[in-house]
């Protein structure tokens, strides 16, 4: 299956749009509920390796953007699937049934950004101690965090 066929299929999904971005990465933006379907389709067309799942915080737009980074060992191209969640109550379906590695990556993303992954087989903290919530959000404050001095 070549890139344009994959893109055609993705663009048929309601609310989803795909294009070849810079660095020839297949860039897909989709609503959260469509992500498992899109990842399943991409996995079928050769994208067998999920490098990571992560997020970035966009407080100015009141959004949390989730990013799923894939690589195809067959066609040797990258794909990045992203979805935008409401920052107040971010929730997305878990994809750990499709890629087993997502289980740990989602746990990390959940604790770092306060995102909820519905249907996750083993939710709970992975790296952080109790009492630290969503440290990678931009508005996270900690007494020991001081800005870098300007030299």
């Amino acid at each position: 299956m070549n890139t344009s066929d994959i893109l055609d299929d993705i663009n048929k999904v309601p609310g989803a749009s795909g294009a070849v971005g810079p660095d020839s990465v297949l860039d897909v933006l989709a609503p959260a509920k469509e992500v498992p379907g899109i990842l399943t389709a991409l996995k079928k067309s050769g994208f067998g390796h999920l490098s990571f799942v992560t997020a970035k915080d966009l407080p100015s737009e009141n959004l949390i953007e989730l990013v799923y980074r894939l690589f195809s060992y067959v066609s040797r191209i990258d794909a990045s699937v992203r979805t935008r969640l409401d920052r107040g109550n971010p929730s997305a379906p878990s994809v750990s049934g499709i890629f087993r590695t997502a289980e740990w990556h989602e746990r990390e993303t959940a604790e770092m950004f306060g995102v909820e992954f519905s249907g996750h087989p083993c939710p709970g903290k992975l790296l952080l101690p109790d009492g630290v919530e969503a440290p990678l959000r931009k508005d996270f404050k900690h007494e020991k965090m001081t800005p870098l001095p300007v030299v």
Partner: peptide, 17 residues
């Protein structure tokens, strides 16, 4: 069970050139 030496390096990087 991991995370015993989590150092938050990704957050640190946001504050470095």
């Amino acid at each position: 069970d991991v995370g015993y030496i989590h150092s938050g390096v990704e957050k640190l990087c946001e504050n470095r050139t």
